[in-house]
Amino acid sequence: MTMTLETTALERPDAIKSASSNRWQRFARPLLGILVPLTLALAWEAAVWLGWSNGRLVPPPSRVFATIMELTRSGELWRHITTTLWRVAAGFGLGTVAGTLLGAVSGYWGIARRLLDPTVQALRAIPSIAWVPLFILWLGIFETSKVALIAVGVFFPVYLGVMGAILSVDRKIVEVGRTFRLSGPAMIRRILLPAVLPAYVVALRVGLGLGWMFVVAAEFMGASEGLGYLLIDGQQLGKPAQILAAITIFALLGKTTDWLIELVTAPLLRWQDAFRPGGES
């Protein structure tokens, strides 16, 4: 009897600790990330509310939120969001397909690399925005030129990521495939693809980030809808709250789409033996 009492008493603090640390991991970790922006926002809100600033040029969060609600109610926001999302999706899709194909070809065949890579690298040195006038001349000022610009932005990081990943596949692992006499396609499917996957996911995420960057540039060059249009419109009509509303939505969409890539690919990368600062997560 005393024994059991003693052991439970001994085990208890430990159990409590692990349970509470579990709860801490589940809820507090994400909260930690929100802490800084939330504090800043609240501080600014308070500053305006207390009259320390009139908040005309930098509207407080409540006014930005009100603008968002207003745009939502009129249905305008939805239209802008879908337009921008469609542009990013189309540009990202095209850029990813082209970057993946060319990157894979250049990575896999030395001849293709010597043939293609210098040209691609030279093109990469051109700031992508410099293409805008040409794209408008070639493709008109409507959707095509916008999607093309975004695709160009996405193409380079994906191309570089895929090619670099293939070139840095460990020779030792490839030799394992060779000793088991894998054919060319089997080698690609069973060794190369899984080996490049982690770097490929990173390339996609970088590409997507650039896609979001370029959609703004594309929408600056004359658009009648889209989140970028909201930005320009807000500037021309002197509505900083609308600009901040658009920026907030950009942030949310960018983060969400990035997170979607992470979510979809996470099961494929569970095997990774990576350094995770701050412990397992």
Binding site: R181, A186, A195
Partner: peptide
């Protein structure tokens, strides 16, 4: 060229990190 009658074990295990232990062992039995 590599031949089915010949197997090799290297100084490092050279396991494929994306396959479970069982799948690594079954790698040559596809």
């Amino acid at each position: 060229a590599p031949h089915e009658k010949i197997g090799i074990i290297f100084q490092e295990p050279r396991l494929l990190p994306w396959l479970s232990v069982a799948d690594n062992i079954g790698f040559g039995l596809s």
